[in-house]
C-alpha cells in the first residue's frame, strides 16, 4: 500500500452531496485496512465530526482548524489512537466549518492539504480522508492530496445528477479523472428504480467498482454502537460488502498498481 518511494497512499471518500454513506464507508474501510495490517490514519475533515464520534474519540482540540492548517508537529499532537490496533484518527471539530475560508487566506492554497499530509505518508500506509459535502477550495485540496477519490453514489435521480456535477467539477478544474472511483451506496436491490439508475449510470460514467453497499439497518446501527461495522457485526451481510469493496480498493492502491490504471 505504499508508492515506490515507500510513502503511504491517500484515499478520500468524497461527494458534494450529503447523506450518501461517506462517513460509514470511510470508517469501515479504514478499520478493515488497519485490521489487514496497514497502519491507517483516518482524517475527519467534516465539521459534523461523525467519524470522530463513531470512534469514541473526545478530541478536546485547541484551535483544531488553525492547527490543521499549520501542519507538522501541531497536527501530530492532535492525532489519537482508536480502540483498534493500527488505526489512528485525526479528529474534527466544529471549527472545521471554516476550513475553506482559512485555506483561501494561505499561499499555494490548493496544495496545502497535500503538504500537511506529506510527513504522515511516511508514518502510515494508508490515509483515509472523510470529506464534508462540499465543492469548494477544500474539495480541490482533497483532489490534489489524494491518490484515489472514492465516491459513494446512491442510485437515485438526484444523486445521479449530483455525481454528474462532481465529474464535471473535476474535469473543469483539470484534475485527473483517473483517480476517481465510484461505488453504489445504500442500494435497495428490490427497487426497480435503483436497478435502472445503476445500469444507466454505468453506461454514462467510467470508473465503477463492482461492489455495491446495500441499504441496511446494520450500517445505521454504527451510531449507537459507536464502532466500525466489522468490529461489532463481523459476519453481517453489509460487513461482507465493505470487505469486498476493500479488496477492490486494495488492488487499485496496492503495490505495482497505479490508481486509475484499472478499467471500470
Amino acid at each position: 500500500m505504499v508508492d515506490k518511494s515507500g510513502r503511504g497512499r491517500v484515499m478520500a471518500v468524497y461527494h458534494l452531496k450529503g447523506g450518501v454513506g461517506k462517513t460509514a464507508a470511510a470508517v469501515n474501510l479504514a478499520y478493515i485496512s488497519a485490521a489487514s495490517g496497514y497502519r491507517t490514519l483516518l482524517c475527519d475533515l467534516d465539521p459534523q465530526s461523525s467519524a470522530t464520534y463513531y470512534l469514541r474519540v473526545e478530541p478536546r482540540l485547541k484551535h483544531a482548524r488553525k492547527v490543521l492548517l499549520k501542519g507538522g508537529a501541531n497536527v501530530s499532537g492532535n492525532i489519537k489512537g482508536t480502540d483498534y490496533d493500527g488505526l489512528d484518527l485525526l479528529p474534527a471539530d466544529w471549527s472545521h466549518r471554516h476550513l475553506t475560508t482559512s485555506l483561501d487566506r494561505v499561499s499555494k492554497s490548493r496544495k496545502r492539504l497535500r503538504s500537511i499530509l506529506g510527513p504522515f505518508r511516511r508514518e502510515y500506509d494508508l490515509i483515509v480522508l472523510d470529506s464534508p459535502a462540499t465543492a469548494t477550495l477544500l474539495a480541490e485540496n482533497i483532489f490534489v492530496a489524494s491518490d484515489l477519490v472514492l465516491v459513494p453514489v446512491v442510485p437515485s435521480t438526484l444523486a445521479a445528477r449530483a455525481y454528474a456535477n462532481v465529474r464535471a467539477f473535476i474535469r473543469r478544474k483539470g484534475y485527473d479523472e483517473g483517480k476517481v472511483w465510484a461505488f453504489f451506496s445504500m442500494v435497495e436491490a428490490r427497487k426497480k428504480m435503483h436497478r435502472a439508475t445503476m445500469a444507466a449510470m454505468k453506461e454514462q460514467f467510467p470508473g465503477w467498482l463492482g461492489t455495491a453497499i446495500p441499504y441496511a439497518a446494520d450500517v445505521e446501527s454504527m451510531g449507537s454502537a459507536r464502532a466500525p461495522l466489522p468490529a461489532f457485526l463481523p459476519v453481517a451481510a453489509a460487513t461482507g460488502r465493505y470487505r469486498a469493496l476493500w479488496d477492490e480498493l486494495a488492488a487499485v492502491l496496492g503495490p505495482g498498481s497505479t490508481p486509475g490504471s484499472q478499467s471500470a
Partner: peptide
C-alpha cells in the same frame, strides 16, 4: 520497518517497493 505481504518472503527482490525491500 514493515510491509504487508501475502505468503513468505523469498528474497528482497520479491517484495513490493518500499523501505523493507530497500
Amino acid at each position: 520497518v514493515r510491509i504487508a505481504l501475502e505468503g513468505p518472503p523469498t528474497s528482497a527482490d520479491s517484495l513490493p517497493p518500499g523501505e523493507v525491500r530497500n
